[in-house]
Design a protein around this nucleic acid. Sequence first.
RNA 1: GGGCCGGUAGCUCAACUGGCAGAGCAGCGGACUUUUAAUCCGCGGGUUGUGGGUUCGAUUCCCACCCGGCCUACCA
Length: 547
Amino acid sequence: MCATTATRRAVLEERSTMTLNDQQEQRLAKLRSLREQGIDPYPPRCTRTHSAAEAIERFRRIEASLGDEPDPEAISVVGRVVAIRDLGRIIFSHIRDGSGAIQLYLRRDLLGDERFAWFKRFVDLNDFVEAQGNLFRTRTGEISVQVTGFRLLSKALNPPPDKWHGLSDVETRYRQRYVDLLANDETRRIFVVRANLVRALRRYLDERGFLEVETPTLQPLYGGAAARPFTTYYHALDQTFYLRISDELYLKRLLVGGYDRVYEMCKDFRNEGIDARHSPEFTMLEFYAAYCDYLDVMQMCEEMVVHAAEQSLGTLLIPWGEHTIDLTPPWRRLTLRDALIEHTGIDFLEVNDQAELYARARALGADVLPTTVWPRILDELLKTFVRPRLIQPTFVYDYPVELSPLAKRKPEDPRLVERFQLFIGGLELANAYTELNDPLDQLARFLEQARDRELGDEEAMPIDEDYVNALMYGMPPTGGFGIGIDRLAMLFTNQQNIREVILFPQLRVKPEPTGLAEDLAPYLDLAAAPDQVSGAAPSIDNDVGGS
RNA sequence: GGGCCGGUAGCUCAACUGGCAGAGCAGCGGACUUUUAAUCCGCGGGUUGUGGGUUCGAUUCCCACCCGGCCUACCA
Protein backbone atom coordinates (compact mmCIF):
# COMPACT_ATOMS: atom_id res chain seq x y z
CA MET A 1 0.00 0.00 0.00
CA CYS A 2 2.70 2.40 1.05
CA ALA A 3 4.86 1.20 -1.80
CA THR A 4 2.01 1.70 -4.24
CA THR A 5 1.38 5.20 -2.98
CA ALA A 6 5.06 6.00 -3.20
CA THR A 7 5.21 4.64 -6.73
CA ARG A 8 2.22 6.66 -7.77
CA ARG A 9 3.70 9.76 -6.24
CA ALA A 10 6.92 9.19 -8.15
CA VAL A 11 4.97 8.79 -11.38
CA LEU A 12 3.01 11.94 -10.61
CA GLU A 13 6.19 13.89 -10.06
CA GLU A 14 7.75 12.66 -13.27
CA ARG A 15 4.80 13.21 -15.51
CA SER A 16 4.09 16.30 -17.53
CA THR A 17 1.95 19.25 -16.62
CA MET A 18 -1.45 18.02 -17.64
CA THR A 19 -4.27 17.99 -15.16
CA LEU A 20 -7.96 17.74 -15.76
CA ASN A 21 -9.55 21.08 -16.48
CA ASP A 22 -12.71 22.41 -14.86
CA GLN A 23 -14.94 21.31 -17.72
CA GLN A 24 -13.65 17.75 -17.62
CA GLU A 25 -14.18 17.60 -13.88
CA GLN A 26 -17.66 19.00 -14.33
CA ARG A 27 -18.54 16.28 -16.80
CA LEU A 28 -17.00 13.55 -14.67
CA ALA A 29 -19.18 14.76 -11.79
CA LYS A 30 -22.22 14.42 -14.06
CA LEU A 31 -21.07 10.96 -15.05
CA ARG A 32 -20.86 10.01 -11.38
CA SER A 33 -24.37 11.27 -10.83
CA LEU A 34 -25.63 9.25 -13.80
CA ARG A 35 -24.11 6.11 -12.33
CA GLU A 36 -25.70 6.90 -8.98
CA GLN A 37 -29.07 7.25 -10.71
CA GLY A 38 -28.54 3.81 -12.18
CA ILE A 39 -28.32 5.17 -15.69
CA ASP A 40 -25.91 3.64 -18.18
CA PRO A 41 -24.10 6.59 -19.80
CA TYR A 42 -23.00 4.30 -22.63
CA PRO A 43 -25.96 2.05 -23.52
CA PRO A 44 -25.19 -0.53 -26.20
CA ARG A 45 -28.15 0.10 -28.47
CA CYS A 46 -30.37 2.88 -29.65
CA THR A 47 -33.55 3.32 -31.63
CA ARG A 48 -33.56 5.37 -34.78
CA THR A 49 -36.37 5.58 -37.29
CA HIS A 50 -34.83 8.35 -39.42
CA SER A 51 -31.49 9.95 -40.01
CA ALA A 52 -31.49 13.72 -39.65
CA ALA A 53 -31.63 14.13 -43.42
CA GLU A 54 -34.37 11.52 -43.79
CA ALA A 55 -36.46 13.20 -41.11
CA ILE A 56 -36.23 16.55 -42.84
CA GLU A 57 -36.98 14.92 -46.17
CA ARG A 58 -40.02 13.17 -44.67
CA PHE A 59 -41.45 16.41 -43.35
CA ARG A 60 -41.00 18.17 -46.66
CA ARG A 61 -42.86 15.36 -48.35
CA ILE A 62 -45.88 15.35 -46.05
CA GLU A 63 -45.94 18.98 -44.99
CA ALA A 64 -48.65 20.10 -47.44
CA SER A 65 -51.14 17.56 -46.05
CA LEU A 66 -50.59 18.56 -42.42
CA GLY A 67 -51.91 22.10 -42.33
CA ASP A 68 -50.11 23.75 -39.44
CA GLU A 69 -50.21 20.64 -37.27
CA PRO A 70 -47.10 18.62 -36.39
CA ASP A 71 -46.58 15.26 -38.06
CA PRO A 72 -48.87 12.96 -36.03
CA GLU A 73 -46.49 10.04 -36.42
CA ALA A 74 -43.68 9.97 -33.87
CA ILE A 75 -40.16 9.46 -35.11
CA SER A 76 -36.85 8.83 -33.40
CA VAL A 77 -33.58 10.56 -34.31
CA VAL A 78 -30.09 10.22 -32.89
CA GLY A 79 -26.89 12.22 -32.98
CA ARG A 80 -24.28 14.35 -31.32
CA VAL A 81 -25.48 17.44 -29.47
CA VAL A 82 -23.81 20.34 -31.28
CA ALA A 83 -25.84 23.28 -29.95
CA ILE A 84 -28.05 24.02 -26.96
CA ARG A 85 -30.06 27.23 -26.64
CA ASP A 86 -31.83 27.33 -23.31
CA LEU A 87 -34.72 29.84 -23.26
CA GLY A 88 -36.17 28.94 -19.91
CA ARG A 89 -39.28 26.85 -20.41
CA ILE A 90 -38.15 25.77 -23.88
CA ILE A 91 -34.83 24.62 -25.25
CA PHE A 92 -33.61 24.53 -28.81
CA SER A 93 -30.85 22.08 -29.57
CA HIS A 94 -29.21 20.74 -32.70
CA ILE A 95 -28.03 17.19 -33.02
CA ARG A 96 -25.89 15.93 -35.86
CA ASP A 97 -25.48 12.48 -37.33
CA GLY A 98 -23.62 11.42 -40.46
CA SER A 99 -26.38 12.75 -42.70
CA GLY A 100 -26.51 16.26 -41.25
CA ALA A 101 -28.11 18.16 -38.39
CA ILE A 102 -31.67 18.54 -37.15
CA GLN A 103 -33.12 20.85 -34.52
CA LEU A 104 -34.74 19.52 -31.37
CA TYR A 105 -37.48 21.58 -29.73
CA LEU A 106 -38.00 20.74 -26.08
CA ARG A 107 -40.88 22.20 -24.07
CA ARG A 108 -41.20 21.86 -20.36
CA ASP A 109 -44.98 21.44 -20.55
CA LEU A 110 -44.62 18.60 -23.08
CA LEU A 111 -41.70 16.79 -21.48
CA GLY A 112 -42.67 17.31 -17.86
CA ASP A 113 -40.74 19.29 -15.28
CA GLU A 114 -38.51 16.42 -14.26
CA ARG A 115 -37.31 15.29 -17.70
CA PHE A 116 -36.94 18.89 -18.82
CA ALA A 117 -34.76 19.72 -15.85
CA TRP A 118 -32.81 16.50 -16.37
CA PHE A 119 -31.93 17.54 -19.91
CA LYS A 120 -30.68 20.90 -18.65
CA ARG A 121 -28.69 19.28 -15.88
CA PHE A 122 -27.09 16.34 -17.63
CA VAL A 123 -26.97 16.85 -21.40
CA ASP A 124 -23.85 18.63 -22.65
CA LEU A 125 -22.40 19.58 -25.99
CA ASN A 126 -20.73 16.57 -27.65
CA ASP A 127 -22.99 14.05 -25.93
CA PHE A 128 -24.89 11.66 -28.15
CA VAL A 129 -28.63 11.47 -27.55
CA GLU A 130 -31.70 9.79 -28.95
CA ALA A 131 -34.90 11.84 -29.20
CA GLN A 132 -38.46 10.86 -29.93
CA GLY A 133 -41.07 13.30 -31.10
CA ASN A 134 -43.05 14.83 -33.92
CA LEU A 135 -41.77 16.77 -36.88
CA PHE A 136 -42.98 20.32 -37.33
CA ARG A 137 -41.81 23.64 -38.62
CA THR A 138 -40.88 26.38 -36.15
CA ARG A 139 -42.10 29.93 -36.41
CA THR A 140 -38.81 30.87 -38.05
CA GLY A 141 -39.27 28.08 -40.57
CA GLU A 142 -36.83 25.37 -39.47
CA ILE A 143 -37.96 21.77 -39.63
CA SER A 144 -37.56 20.44 -36.09
CA VAL A 145 -38.51 17.60 -33.78
CA GLN A 146 -40.93 18.50 -30.99
CA VAL A 147 -39.46 16.22 -28.37
CA THR A 148 -41.65 13.94 -26.26
CA GLY A 149 -38.85 11.74 -24.95
CA PHE A 150 -35.08 11.51 -25.06
CA ARG A 151 -32.26 9.33 -23.82
CA LEU A 152 -28.52 9.74 -23.38
CA LEU A 153 -26.56 7.49 -25.76
CA SER A 154 -22.98 8.47 -24.97
CA LYS A 155 -21.59 10.88 -22.42
CA ALA A 156 -18.75 13.08 -23.68
CA LEU A 157 -16.07 14.05 -21.17
CA ASN A 158 -14.34 16.65 -23.33
CA PRO A 159 -16.02 19.86 -24.54
CA PRO A 160 -15.99 20.77 -28.22
CA PRO A 161 -13.66 23.48 -29.56
CA ASP A 162 -14.87 27.00 -30.16
CA LYS A 163 -18.30 26.83 -31.78
CA TRP A 164 -17.56 29.71 -34.12
CA HIS A 165 -13.87 29.36 -34.96
CA GLY A 166 -13.71 25.60 -34.64
CA LEU A 167 -10.25 24.12 -34.16
CA SER A 168 -7.58 25.96 -36.12
CA ASP A 169 -4.30 25.02 -34.47
CA VAL A 170 -2.63 23.00 -37.22
CA GLU A 171 -0.65 20.79 -34.89
CA THR A 172 -3.72 19.81 -32.87
CA ARG A 173 -5.74 19.32 -36.04
CA TYR A 174 -3.23 16.75 -37.27
CA ARG A 175 -2.45 15.09 -33.94
CA GLN A 176 -6.10 14.85 -32.91
CA ARG A 177 -7.83 14.57 -36.26
CA TYR A 178 -10.96 13.32 -34.51
CA VAL A 179 -11.38 16.76 -32.95
CA ASP A 180 -10.71 18.47 -36.27
CA LEU A 181 -13.33 16.30 -37.93
CA LEU A 182 -16.00 16.83 -35.32
CA ALA A 183 -15.37 20.58 -35.19
CA ASN A 184 -14.73 21.51 -38.82
CA ASP A 185 -17.20 20.83 -41.62
CA GLU A 186 -14.56 21.54 -44.25
CA THR A 187 -12.30 18.79 -42.92
CA ARG A 188 -15.14 16.29 -43.07
CA ARG A 189 -15.92 17.40 -46.61
CA ILE A 190 -12.34 16.85 -47.78
CA PHE A 191 -12.32 13.18 -46.88
CA VAL A 192 -15.74 12.59 -48.41
CA VAL A 193 -14.49 14.05 -51.68
CA ARG A 194 -11.38 11.91 -51.41
CA ALA A 195 -13.43 8.75 -50.88
CA ASN A 196 -15.71 9.60 -53.80
CA LEU A 197 -12.68 10.28 -55.96
CA VAL A 198 -11.13 6.92 -55.11
CA ARG A 199 -14.42 5.16 -55.77
CA ALA A 200 -14.74 6.84 -59.16
CA LEU A 201 -11.22 5.84 -60.17
CA ARG A 202 -11.85 2.23 -59.20
CA ARG A 203 -15.13 2.18 -61.08
CA TYR A 204 -13.49 3.61 -64.19
CA LEU A 205 -10.89 0.84 -64.21
CA ASP A 206 -13.27 -1.94 -63.15
CA GLU A 207 -15.63 -1.08 -65.99
CA ARG A 208 -12.79 -1.33 -68.50
CA GLY A 209 -11.69 -4.82 -67.68
CA PHE A 210 -8.90 -4.07 -65.22
CA LEU A 211 -8.18 -6.64 -62.53
CA GLU A 212 -7.52 -5.15 -59.09
CA VAL A 213 -4.58 -6.94 -57.49
CA GLU A 214 -2.49 -6.78 -54.33
CA THR A 215 1.28 -7.03 -54.39
CA PRO A 216 3.78 -7.07 -51.52
CA THR A 217 4.23 -4.08 -49.25
CA LEU A 218 7.27 -5.75 -47.70
CA GLN A 219 9.72 -6.37 -50.50
CA PRO A 220 13.13 -8.10 -50.39
CA LEU A 221 14.35 -5.68 -53.05
CA TYR A 222 12.89 -2.28 -53.75
CA GLY A 223 12.40 -0.84 -57.20
CA GLY A 224 10.14 0.91 -59.65
CA ALA A 225 11.17 4.39 -58.54
CA ALA A 226 14.20 6.34 -57.42
CA ALA A 227 13.96 6.87 -53.69
CA ARG A 228 15.43 5.85 -50.37
CA PRO A 229 13.36 3.10 -48.81
CA PHE A 230 12.31 2.42 -45.25
CA THR A 231 14.20 -0.66 -44.11
CA THR A 232 12.93 -3.30 -41.73
CA TYR A 233 13.83 -6.76 -40.55
CA TYR A 234 11.77 -9.86 -41.18
CA HIS A 235 12.59 -12.16 -38.25
CA ALA A 236 10.81 -15.26 -39.55
CA LEU A 237 12.89 -15.12 -42.73
CA ASP A 238 15.97 -13.70 -41.03
CA GLN A 239 16.35 -11.13 -43.79
CA THR A 240 16.26 -7.41 -44.39
CA PHE A 241 13.11 -6.19 -46.15
CA TYR A 242 12.02 -2.85 -47.50
CA LEU A 243 8.69 -1.10 -47.50
CA ARG A 244 7.78 -0.68 -51.13
CA ILE A 245 8.67 2.58 -52.84
CA SER A 246 6.56 1.40 -55.78
CA ASP A 247 4.62 -1.64 -56.94
CA GLU A 248 5.59 -1.18 -60.58
CA LEU A 249 7.88 -4.16 -61.06
CA TYR A 250 5.37 -6.55 -59.45
CA LEU A 251 2.50 -5.33 -61.57
CA LYS A 252 4.52 -5.78 -64.73
CA ARG A 253 5.40 -9.32 -63.66
CA LEU A 254 1.65 -9.91 -63.71
CA LEU A 255 1.53 -8.90 -67.38
CA VAL A 256 4.20 -11.48 -68.04
CA GLY A 257 1.90 -13.88 -66.22
CA GLY A 258 -0.87 -13.27 -68.70
CA TYR A 259 -3.22 -10.68 -67.25
CA ASP A 260 -3.88 -7.99 -69.85
CA ARG A 261 -4.97 -5.25 -67.50
CA VAL A 262 -4.13 -4.88 -63.80
CA TYR A 263 -4.21 -2.10 -61.28
CA GLU A 264 -3.39 -1.56 -57.63
CA MET A 265 -4.11 1.35 -55.35
CA CYS A 266 -1.77 1.22 -52.40
CA LYS A 267 0.48 3.01 -49.97
CA ASP A 268 4.05 3.54 -51.09
CA PHE A 269 6.77 4.61 -48.68
CA ARG A 270 9.75 6.83 -49.43
CA ASN A 271 12.21 7.69 -46.72
CA GLU A 272 12.60 11.29 -47.73
CA GLY A 273 11.67 14.81 -46.79
CA ILE A 274 8.23 15.97 -45.80
CA ASP A 275 6.81 19.11 -47.34
CA ALA A 276 3.57 20.51 -48.69
CA ARG A 277 3.59 18.08 -51.64
CA HIS A 278 5.47 15.09 -50.22
CA SER A 279 4.41 12.64 -47.56
CA PRO A 280 6.75 9.73 -46.78
CA GLU A 281 3.67 7.48 -46.77
CA PHE A 282 1.41 8.20 -49.71
CA THR A 283 -1.17 6.56 -51.91
CA MET A 284 -0.50 5.69 -55.51
CA LEU A 285 -2.71 4.22 -58.18
CA GLU A 286 -0.85 2.33 -60.89
CA PHE A 287 -2.35 0.51 -63.83
CA TYR A 288 -0.82 -1.46 -66.70
CA ALA A 289 -2.60 -2.18 -69.96
CA ALA A 290 -1.22 -4.65 -72.48
CA TYR A 291 -1.29 -3.77 -76.17
CA CYS A 292 -1.36 -0.06 -75.34
CA ASP A 293 1.34 2.59 -75.65
CA TYR A 294 1.84 5.83 -73.75
CA LEU A 295 -0.42 7.77 -76.09
CA ASP A 296 -3.27 5.35 -75.41
CA VAL A 297 -2.56 5.75 -71.70
CA MET A 298 -2.57 9.52 -72.05
CA GLN A 299 -6.06 9.27 -73.48
CA MET A 300 -7.19 7.00 -70.65
CA CYS A 301 -5.64 9.27 -68.05
CA GLU A 302 -7.58 12.23 -69.35
CA GLU A 303 -10.84 10.26 -69.41
CA MET A 304 -10.25 8.80 -65.96
CA VAL A 305 -9.55 12.11 -64.23
CA VAL A 306 -12.48 13.76 -66.00
CA HIS A 307 -14.70 10.86 -64.93
CA ALA A 308 -13.47 11.19 -61.35
CA ALA A 309 -14.18 14.93 -61.29
CA GLU A 310 -17.66 14.46 -62.70
CA GLN A 311 -18.44 11.72 -60.20
CA SER A 312 -16.95 13.26 -57.08
CA LEU A 313 -17.37 17.00 -57.73
CA GLY A 314 -20.03 17.19 -60.42
CA THR A 315 -18.00 19.77 -62.36
CA LEU A 316 -14.90 20.13 -64.49
CA LEU A 317 -14.16 23.63 -63.19
CA ILE A 318 -12.00 23.41 -60.09
CA PRO A 319 -11.03 26.33 -57.88
CA TRP A 320 -7.31 26.25 -57.12
CA GLY A 321 -6.01 29.13 -55.06
CA GLU A 322 -6.27 32.20 -57.26
CA HIS A 323 -6.99 30.09 -60.33
CA THR A 324 -9.82 28.12 -61.78
CA ILE A 325 -8.68 24.91 -63.41
CA ASP A 326 -10.67 23.72 -66.40
CA LEU A 327 -10.51 19.95 -66.85
CA THR A 328 -12.50 20.03 -70.07
CA PRO A 329 -10.67 17.89 -72.62
CA PRO A 330 -8.60 17.85 -74.70
CA TRP A 331 -5.69 18.83 -72.44
CA ARG A 332 -2.62 20.56 -73.71
CA ARG A 333 0.20 18.29 -74.84
CA LEU A 334 3.76 19.41 -75.34
CA THR A 335 7.08 17.69 -75.50
CA LEU A 336 9.56 18.19 -72.70
CA ARG A 337 11.84 19.71 -75.34
CA ASP A 338 9.22 22.32 -76.31
CA ALA A 339 8.30 22.96 -72.68
CA LEU A 340 11.91 23.73 -71.82
CA ILE A 341 12.39 25.85 -74.92
CA GLU A 342 9.24 27.78 -74.06
CA HIS A 343 10.18 28.48 -70.45
CA THR A 344 13.99 28.47 -70.46
CA GLY A 345 15.04 28.91 -74.08
CA ILE A 346 17.15 25.78 -73.82
CA ASP A 347 16.83 23.05 -76.45
CA PHE A 348 18.27 20.02 -74.71
CA LEU A 349 18.63 18.11 -77.96
CA GLU A 350 21.02 20.81 -79.15
CA VAL A 351 22.77 21.42 -75.82
CA ASN A 352 23.94 17.88 -75.18
CA ASP A 353 27.20 18.93 -73.63
CA GLN A 354 27.24 18.68 -69.83
CA ALA A 355 29.30 21.81 -69.25
CA GLU A 356 27.31 23.94 -71.63
CA LEU A 357 23.97 22.86 -70.14
CA TYR A 358 25.32 23.61 -66.68
CA ALA A 359 26.39 27.08 -67.78
CA ARG A 360 23.03 27.79 -69.39
CA ALA A 361 21.13 26.58 -66.31
CA ARG A 362 23.26 28.68 -63.98
CA ALA A 363 22.71 31.71 -66.19
CA LEU A 364 18.97 31.26 -65.64
CA GLY A 365 19.50 31.09 -61.87
CA ALA A 366 18.85 27.36 -61.51
CA ASP A 367 20.25 25.86 -58.34
CA VAL A 368 22.56 23.23 -59.83
CA LEU A 369 26.08 22.15 -59.02
CA PRO A 370 28.97 21.54 -61.44
CA THR A 371 28.65 17.87 -60.53
CA THR A 372 24.96 17.70 -61.37
CA VAL A 373 24.64 15.32 -64.29
CA TRP A 374 22.98 16.31 -67.55
CA PRO A 375 19.60 14.61 -66.99
CA ARG A 376 19.35 15.96 -63.44
CA ILE A 377 19.92 19.49 -64.72
CA LEU A 378 17.02 18.99 -67.12
CA ASP A 379 14.91 17.74 -64.27
CA GLU A 380 15.84 20.79 -62.22
CA LEU A 381 14.92 23.10 -65.08
CA LEU A 382 11.59 21.34 -65.43
CA LYS A 383 10.81 21.70 -61.74
CA THR A 384 11.97 25.26 -61.37
CA PHE A 385 10.84 26.94 -64.57
CA VAL A 386 8.15 24.79 -66.12
CA ARG A 387 6.12 22.95 -63.49
CA PRO A 388 5.03 25.98 -61.44
CA ARG A 389 3.54 27.52 -64.60
CA LEU A 390 1.58 24.47 -65.63
CA ILE A 391 -1.68 25.36 -63.92
CA GLN A 392 -4.12 24.11 -66.54
CA PRO A 393 -3.90 20.37 -67.29
CA THR A 394 -0.81 19.69 -69.36
CA PHE A 395 0.85 16.53 -70.58
CA VAL A 396 4.61 16.87 -70.94
CA TYR A 397 6.07 13.99 -72.94
CA ASP A 398 9.21 12.44 -74.43
CA TYR A 399 11.88 12.47 -71.72
CA PRO A 400 15.60 11.74 -71.97
CA VAL A 401 16.38 8.10 -71.44
CA GLU A 402 18.69 8.75 -68.50
CA LEU A 403 15.74 9.87 -66.35
CA SER A 404 13.62 6.83 -67.09
CA PRO A 405 15.24 3.41 -66.62
CA LEU A 406 11.96 1.52 -67.02
CA ALA A 407 10.58 3.22 -70.14
CA LYS A 408 10.89 2.19 -73.77
CA ARG A 409 12.99 4.24 -76.16
CA LYS A 410 11.43 6.14 -79.02
CA PRO A 411 12.27 4.24 -82.19
CA GLU A 412 12.95 7.48 -84.08
CA ASP A 413 15.24 8.93 -81.38
CA PRO A 414 16.88 6.52 -78.91
CA ARG A 415 18.01 9.41 -76.71
CA LEU A 416 14.36 9.79 -75.67
CA VAL A 417 11.81 7.48 -74.11
CA GLU A 418 8.06 7.28 -74.56
CA ARG A 419 7.09 8.83 -71.29
CA PHE A 420 4.71 11.54 -70.13
CA GLN A 421 3.94 13.36 -66.93
CA LEU A 422 0.69 15.13 -66.11
CA PHE A 423 0.81 18.54 -64.45
CA ILE A 424 -2.20 20.35 -63.05
CA GLY A 425 -2.15 23.28 -60.68
CA GLY A 426 1.64 23.18 -60.67
CA LEU A 427 1.45 19.68 -59.19
CA GLU A 428 3.18 16.70 -60.71
CA LEU A 429 0.22 14.34 -60.66
CA ALA A 430 0.95 11.39 -62.89
CA ASN A 431 3.76 9.60 -64.65
CA ALA A 432 3.46 7.05 -67.44
CA TYR A 433 5.38 5.26 -70.12
CA THR A 434 5.36 2.75 -72.83
CA GLU A 435 6.91 0.04 -70.69
CA LEU A 436 10.33 -1.29 -71.47
CA ASN A 437 9.85 -4.98 -72.29
CA ASP A 438 13.24 -5.69 -73.86
CA PRO A 439 15.05 -7.76 -71.19
CA LEU A 440 18.51 -6.91 -72.47
CA ASP A 441 17.87 -3.17 -72.67
CA GLN A 442 16.34 -3.41 -69.19
CA LEU A 443 19.45 -5.11 -67.87
CA ALA A 444 21.62 -2.46 -69.51
CA ARG A 445 19.57 0.27 -67.81
CA PHE A 446 19.86 -1.47 -64.45
CA LEU A 447 23.63 -1.68 -64.92
CA GLU A 448 23.71 2.02 -65.67
CA GLN A 449 21.77 2.64 -62.47
CA ALA A 450 24.24 0.48 -60.60
CA ARG A 451 27.06 2.68 -61.87
CA ASP A 452 25.26 5.80 -60.65
CA ARG A 453 24.78 4.04 -57.35
CA GLU A 454 28.49 3.39 -57.01
CA LEU A 455 29.07 7.05 -57.76
CA GLY A 456 26.98 7.90 -54.70
CA ASP A 457 23.45 8.22 -56.04
CA GLU A 458 21.58 6.61 -53.14
CA GLU A 459 18.38 6.66 -55.11
CA ALA A 460 19.53 4.81 -58.16
CA MET A 461 17.69 1.55 -58.59
CA PRO A 462 19.25 -1.73 -57.51
CA ILE A 463 19.49 -4.46 -60.14
CA ASP A 464 16.46 -6.75 -60.03
CA GLU A 465 17.60 -9.91 -61.79
CA ASP A 466 14.32 -11.68 -61.17
CA TYR A 467 12.54 -8.90 -63.00
CA VAL A 468 14.89 -9.30 -65.95
CA ASN A 469 14.19 -13.01 -65.82
CA ALA A 470 10.46 -12.28 -65.93
CA LEU A 471 10.93 -10.11 -69.02
CA MET A 472 12.82 -13.01 -70.61
CA TYR A 473 9.55 -14.96 -70.58
CA GLY A 474 8.04 -12.18 -72.69
CA MET A 475 6.00 -9.16 -71.70
CA PRO A 476 3.51 -7.78 -74.22
CA PRO A 477 3.83 -4.21 -75.43
CA THR A 478 2.32 -2.34 -72.52
CA GLY A 479 1.34 1.11 -71.38
CA GLY A 480 1.80 1.84 -67.68
CA PHE A 481 0.54 4.64 -65.52
CA GLY A 482 0.87 5.94 -61.98
CA ILE A 483 -1.03 8.77 -60.33
CA GLY A 484 -0.63 10.30 -56.88
CA ILE A 485 -3.98 9.96 -55.15
CA ASP A 486 -3.13 12.39 -52.37
CA ARG A 487 -2.16 15.08 -54.86
CA LEU A 488 -5.28 14.45 -56.91
CA ALA A 489 -7.28 14.80 -53.69
CA MET A 490 -5.45 18.10 -53.00
CA LEU A 491 -6.48 19.32 -56.42
CA PHE A 492 -10.10 18.25 -56.03
CA THR A 493 -10.43 19.87 -52.60
CA ASN A 494 -8.35 23.01 -53.24
CA GLN A 495 -5.86 22.17 -50.52
CA GLN A 496 -2.28 23.35 -50.88
CA ASN A 497 -0.81 20.95 -48.29
CA ILE A 498 -0.77 17.19 -48.71
CA ARG A 499 -1.35 16.66 -44.99
CA GLU A 500 -4.77 18.24 -45.37
CA VAL A 501 -5.88 15.25 -47.43
CA ILE A 502 -4.27 12.57 -45.23
CA LEU A 503 -6.37 11.66 -42.21
CA PHE A 504 -3.54 10.95 -39.79
CA PRO A 505 -0.33 12.57 -41.04
CA GLN A 506 2.82 11.61 -39.16
CA LEU A 507 4.26 14.15 -36.75
CA ARG A 508 7.15 13.83 -34.37
CA VAL A 509 5.99 12.19 -31.16
CA LYS A 510 5.84 14.57 -28.23
CA PRO A 511 8.49 13.51 -25.75
CA GLU A 512 6.52 13.96 -22.51
CA PRO A 513 3.69 11.65 -21.48
CA THR A 514 0.38 13.48 -21.25
CA GLY A 515 -0.47 12.26 -17.76
CA LEU A 516 -4.04 11.56 -18.80
CA ALA A 517 -4.05 8.04 -17.42
CA GLU A 518 -2.95 9.27 -14.01
CA ASP A 519 -5.44 12.09 -14.01
CA LEU A 520 -8.33 9.77 -14.79
CA ALA A 521 -7.25 7.05 -12.36
CA PRO A 522 -9.42 8.38 -9.49
CA TYR A 523 -12.49 8.06 -11.72
CA LEU A 524 -12.04 4.49 -12.85
CA ASP A 525 -14.79 3.37 -10.50
CA LEU A 526 -17.19 5.10 -12.91
CA ALA A 527 -16.44 2.59 -15.64
CA ALA A 528 -19.19 0.05 -16.24
CA ALA A 529 -19.34 -2.31 -13.25
CA PRO A 530 -20.22 -5.98 -13.87
CA ASP A 531 -23.57 -5.75 -12.05
CA GLN A 532 -24.55 -2.77 -14.17
CA VAL A 533 -23.67 -4.51 -17.39
CA SER A 534 -25.38 -7.85 -16.89
CA GLY A 535 -29.12 -7.95 -16.85
CA ALA A 536 -29.79 -4.80 -14.86
CA ALA A 537 -33.26 -3.47 -15.58
CA PRO A 538 -33.36 -0.41 -17.78
CA SER A 539 -33.67 2.73 -15.76
CA ILE A 540 -37.04 4.41 -15.67
CA ASP A 541 -35.57 7.89 -15.51
CA ASN A 542 -33.51 7.42 -18.60
CA ASP A 543 -36.04 5.37 -20.46
CA VAL A 544 -37.59 6.37 -23.73
CA GLY A 545 -40.32 8.89 -23.16
CA GLY A 546 -39.75 8.72 -19.42
CA SER A 547 -41.40 10.79 -16.68
C1' G B 1 20.48 20.58 -42.55
C1' G B 2 19.82 26.35 -42.98
C1' G B 3 16.66 30.88 -42.44
C1' C B 4 12.26 33.22 -40.66
C1' C B 5 7.79 32.94 -37.63
C1' G B 6 4.94 30.87 -33.74
C1' G B 7 3.52 28.07 -28.77
C1' U B 8 -0.76 32.53 -23.24
C1' A B 9 -7.64 29.46 -19.97
C1' G B 10 -11.06 23.60 -22.96
C1' C B 11 -11.23 26.63 -28.00
C1' U B 12 -10.19 31.41 -30.77
C1' C B 13 -7.17 35.35 -29.61
C1' A B 14 -5.27 40.12 -26.72
C1' A B 15 -1.54 42.07 -23.26
C1' C B 16 2.24 49.24 -25.83
C1' U B 17 8.87 50.61 -23.86
C1' G B 18 9.91 44.86 -18.71
C1' G B 19 5.21 46.85 -14.15
C1' C B 20 -1.40 43.32 -10.78
C1' A B 21 -2.18 37.94 -17.30
C1' G B 22 -7.38 39.80 -20.18
C1' A B 23 -11.66 39.20 -23.78
C1' G B 24 -15.20 36.27 -26.68
C1' C B 25 -16.99 31.39 -26.95
C1' A B 26 -17.30 27.08 -23.85
C1' G B 27 -18.25 25.99 -18.27
C1' C B 28 -20.91 26.97 -13.44
C1' G B 29 -25.26 29.81 -10.91
C1' G B 30 -29.66 32.79 -12.07
C1' A B 31 -33.70 35.17 -15.57
C1' C B 32 -36.35 34.23 -20.03
C1' U B 33 -42.22 29.69 -23.92
C1' U B 34 -39.94 30.15 -31.20
C1' U B 35 -34.12 30.28 -30.85
C1' U B 36 -30.25 29.96 -35.08
C1' A B 37 -22.91 32.49 -32.79
C1' A B 38 -30.10 33.44 -28.83
C1' U B 39 -30.17 37.45 -25.16
C1' C B 40 -29.47 39.51 -20.09
C1' C B 41 -27.15 39.38 -14.81
C1' G B 42 -23.38 37.08 -11.81
C1' C B 43 -19.13 33.54 -10.89
C1' G B 44 -15.08 30.25 -11.43
C1' G B 45 -11.10 28.82 -14.66
C1' G B 46 -3.59 30.07 -16.01
C1' U B 47 3.24 25.81 -14.58
C1' U B 48 2.19 32.14 -20.39
C1' G B 49 5.97 25.01 -24.39
C1' U B 50 10.45 23.29 -20.99
C1' G B 51 14.97 24.57 -18.36
C1' G B 52 18.40 28.28 -17.15
C1' G B 53 19.99 33.59 -17.01
C1' U B 54 19.53 39.16 -16.50
C1' U B 55 16.35 42.26 -13.30
C1' C B 56 13.42 45.00 -7.46
C1' G B 57 10.11 42.77 -11.04
C1' A B 58 9.98 38.56 -17.18
C1' U B 59 4.27 36.38 -21.34
C1' U B 60 7.74 40.51 -22.66
C1' C B 61 14.92 40.76 -22.77
C1' C B 62 19.16 36.85 -23.31
C1' C B 63 20.84 31.47 -23.81
C1' A B 64 19.76 26.31 -24.55
C1' C B 65 16.23 22.75 -25.62
C1' C B 66 11.16 20.70 -27.18
C1' C B 67 6.98 20.97 -30.58
C1' G B 68 4.81 23.15 -34.87
C1' G B 69 4.29 26.36 -39.43
C1' C B 70 6.35 28.77 -43.80
C1' C B 71 10.55 29.22 -47.02
C1' U B 72 14.90 26.75 -48.53
C1' A B 73 17.79 22.34 -49.18
C1' C B 74 16.92 17.20 -50.06
C1' C B 75 13.27 14.51 -52.83
C1' A B 76 11.68 11.79 -60.35
